[in-house]
Amino acid sequence: MTSLASRPETAAPPAGTPYDRLRVVPARHPGRWVATAVVAVLLAMAVNSLVTNPRWEWDVVAAYLTEESIVRGVWTTVQLTLITAVLGFALGTVLALMRLSRSPLLQAVSWGYTWVFRSVPLILQLLLWYNLAYLYQSLDFGIPFGPSFASVETLSLIDKFGAAILGLGLHQAAYSAEIVRAGILSVDQGQLEAAASLGIPRRRQTTRIVLPQAMRSIVPTAVNEVIGLFKGTSIVYVLALGELFYTVSVIYGRTQRVLPMLVVAAVWYVVLTTVVTVIQYYVERHYARGAVRTLPPTPLQRLRGNLTAGLARVRTAREVAR
């Protein structure tokens, strides 16, 4: 304390100076100003070229953005992504639990699944599923190695959409399994000990204690995967399935308006990703309960808070002026 107390004597103004008359000069940052100016100019150039270059053909973009076949393509993309994500994470969770089980066979099967489905390129897997009917003309449901109760033509069950879902979902499951496993491993061992010493049933330990805590590290990576899926579904154009990218490519093949159509697709992919990002924020906030002392405000709450604070400032300023 003594060293702190003695130091201001040299820096402080001579005794008797009234502090409220002193002027504060903020530090200057010339480098920051230069960088800001450069970026502003570059930004203006980019916007300018987007607006003035007629080859972007914004009128065509606008005309096709909500065109019926495009919207249908978007809807197919959304369906593919959502079904695949749900299937992938459901199967992935099962695979992760198998991998963490004490049975060597379950562990090995889970490991083998991940190994195979991560090793084979997705495009190859899709084509394999699409040609499943060549390997197996019909699918039988019944007792293993015994009689069959029902039989379905493979072709009628696995159409283009079915093949796409199977291919994307099973591929996704291999990646999801690792994400879920990482999340489960991130939960403190003491949590399991506490649950075990309280006699909480095994399944309940998983659903109530482990998974909710694992979700905190699962969600950001999982959303990454879902966003990847939205764009990754464009790969099913090899099956000539009418999702967004395939639809767009069919249209520009016919009209030769390649660039505007690519922009249409890009805009839709950005919109979809944005929606998922917003959902991510709220899901993460939900699973942050208890992990942070106070939850951060939602953007809406922050906006409302800023508005109230701003209004209050205006009101006081007006009163001061009066």
Binding site: G190, A196, L198, I209, P212
Partner: peptide, 20 residues
């Protein structure tokens, strides 16, 4: 697990469930 419920266990590091 059922037998264990006859013992109450208090840990050095508490091990409360943080999300509850």
């Amino acid at each position: 697990l059922r037998q264990r419920t006859r013992f109450g266990f208090v840990f050095q590091s508490f091990n409360l469930f943080p999300h509850l």
